[in-house]
Amino acid sequence: MIKITDLHANVEGKEILRGINLEVRPGEVHAIMGPNGSGKSTLASVIAGRDNFEVTQGEIEFEGKNLLEMSPEDRANAGIFLSFQYPVEIPGVSMTNFMKAAVNEQRKYKGLEPLKAAEFLKMMREKAALTGMDSALISRPVNEGFSGGEKKRNEIFQMAILEPKLAILDETDSGLDIDALKIVSEGVNKLKSPDNALILVTHYQRLLDYIVPDFVHVLYKGKIVKSAGKELALELEKKGYDWLKNLEI
């Protein structure tokens, strides 16, 4: 589904990603772990198309398309979804208008007619119920005054509406208490299918108790230094990241 080859990226002249190789196939769940500053969030942002990162080398292929040549909106419409570590508040723009614009742009991309108002509202209600999103929040401005947990749940709610092929969850667990983490994880698990894939970016093993990965990768100084099955996460939990310092990179 997505194939990242020798990806290098800079931010403000500083090289953050230094040769990432990663392939994710439909139905797979990949966890990317690593200490602070290792480049995890940068990788997520580069895939989504944030323009303050400069890709200096390498490629990303998504379903046969050269992702790096696509605008962020085209990437989204092609099926990539980024759940933000810090979801943005947008005063004056209601969740309903925001999602209506997003859904209709996606439909336009697929050559479909805009959704009728009644159908759209019905879908919003269904997806809110599926992800445990408080329906009172839907009429409010995007993320404005939402609690940390509500913001993260809102990300999963949007993911449920847009039904991406590849979802990247950037530190979705951070700032969540155990109950909120459970609810958010349940939402994500309900959306999993053999046709879509997930990349989980996280510090802690905690999230992986709820969303079980097929592969765990350790990112350190802009490179994937170790890849293994889900047992690697448990090992990291026990050993911490100190052992990485002895690695030759």
């Binding site: 989504a48 989204a76 419409n77 980024l82 614009a101 742009e105």
Partner: peptide, 16 residues
Amino acid sequence: FYMQSRGINKSTAQLL
């Protein structure tokens, strides 16, 4: 960028 990452094109996002 948040809006673009949901598939909304930049000029529509600006207008919103």
